[in-house]
Simulated scan of single mutants.
Amino acid sequence: MNYRNEVEIIEIGPRDGFQNVTEFIATNKKKEIIEKLIDAGIRRMQLTSFVSPKHIPQMQDAEEIVKYFLEKYKDIRFFALVPNYRGAKRAFDIGLREITYVISVSEGHNKANVNRSVDESFEELKQIIEEFPELYVNLDAATVFGCPFDGEVTYEQLEKYVEKAVKIGITTINLCDTIGVANPTQVRNVVENLLEKFPNIEFHIHIHDTRNMGMLNSYVAIESGIKHIQASIGGMGGCPFAPGASGNLSTEDFVYMLDKVNIGTGIDFKKLLQVAKECKKTIPGVYSGHHINIDEDLICVF
């Protein structure tokens, strides 16, 4: 086994979770939840996304959220998702210096998600990197393990995709199971092959829990050498442009499991559980894991 005794949990709930909530969440409530996540020990977080409010109204307060947290917290690694050049410029102008840009491995999902071909998206990403050299750009590789439109995504497709990314200067790639179809054998093979082929790339994993395999697949990724796991408080979220893509890996569930197998995260599970309970109680229509009604002092989480 290659996994370390410590991994980094990257919280994506404030973007990937909140974006699927139909009713607008008050900006102050978002700030309150994010601050409680920080208090629980989260040190790297996707705060929001710089998308058109017409398409995702929930993210209309992106500038205010980012400005507030950049000014208040200097020791937390904040970043935001951007779908295009305009989003990258908005993020840069407000002072953010780390972003995520999304390109699907499959053509069908990329077209549905951003209305471009994969090559067109890479051209725009290259432009962003050249025009904003101070921006650290993470690349979200969507549909790594399967596409709702094109079906199977081969490892050969993925390897060519990573080669394109490396060629334009990307050093961090997030492997996304966009619709939750990954299986442990597939995750292990993909991760081990990529880590061997591209040793200088920092790979992350982002698993959806559509078939209740989020924890298993994420754990297998750690066993295979991944050191950075994306998760969402309460299991909130799912891609709005991928049919059948239900919630994300639950941050509190995964931290609980890692605690029990002595893999450190630096995160306080009890505090994290309280944040998940608050999300379920105060955010209308939010998806939450089945465990949230338990008392935090129980020995086991059922």
Rank of each mutant, 00 (worst) to 15 (best):
K30A: 02
L47K: 09
N110Y: 15
E63N: 08
D75R: 13
G95P: 09
N84D: 09
R43Q: 15
E71L: 07
F92D: 06
P83D: 08
L70F: 12
I99Q: 03
G41A: 12
F69S: 08
I76H: 07
F50N: 03
L70K: 14
I38A: 00
T100Q: 07
K89D: 09
V51K: 08
I99C: 02
Y73I: 03
I38F: 02
F78Y: 07
V51P: 06
E71Q: 12
D61Q: 11
R97A: 03
D93T: 02
K72R: 10
K89I: 15
R77G: 10
I34Y: 00
E35I: 04
I33L: 15
K89F: 12
P57D: 07
Q46Y: 14
I42D: 01
A62G: 07
E71H: 09
F50A: 02
G87Q: 02
E107G: 08
R44W: 14
H109A: 08
F79N: 07
A88W: 00
I42G: 02
I42F: 15
M45P: 04
P57W: 06
I65D: 08
R44S: 14
S104F: 11
Y68E: 11
L37P: 14
K54V: 00
F79D: 05
F92C: 07
L47R: 07
I34W: 00
P83R: 08
K54G: 06
R86D: 13
N84A: 11
N110Q: 11
E35S: 11
V51A: 11
A40L: 01
I33H: 03
H55G: 06
A88Q: 01
L47H: 01
A80Y: 00
I94Q: 05
R77Y: 12
R43I: 15
K31T: 06
E35L: 06
P83L: 14
M45L: 13
I33G: 05
V102A: 09
A62D: 03
N84C: 10
Y101N: 04
A40K: 01
E63A: 05
H55M: 12
I65H: 09
S49V: 04
H55Y: 15
D61Y: 03
F50V: 03
L37C: 14
K74A: 09
L81T: 01
I38M: 01
V105I: 15
K74I: 00
P53G: 08
M59R: 01
V51H: 09
L47M: 10
M59S: 03
I65M: 13
F92E: 12
L96Y: 04
F69P: 04
R97E: 02
S104T: 10
E64I: 00
K89C: 13
G87T: 05
E64M: 06
I76C: 08
E107R: 04
F92I: 09
R97T: 08
P83E: 07
K72P: 04
Y68K: 13
F79S: 05
V102K: 00
D75V: 11
K30T: 09
A62C: 08
R90N: 07
Y85T: 07
M45V: 04
R90K: 15
R97I: 06
A80D: 01
S106P: 15
V82I: 05
E71V: 02
I34H: 00
L70I: 11
M45S: 11
Y101I: 12
F69W: 03
K74Y: 05
R86Q: 15
Q60H: 14
E64Q: 15
Y101L: 14
H109C: 08
A91W: 00
E35Q: 14
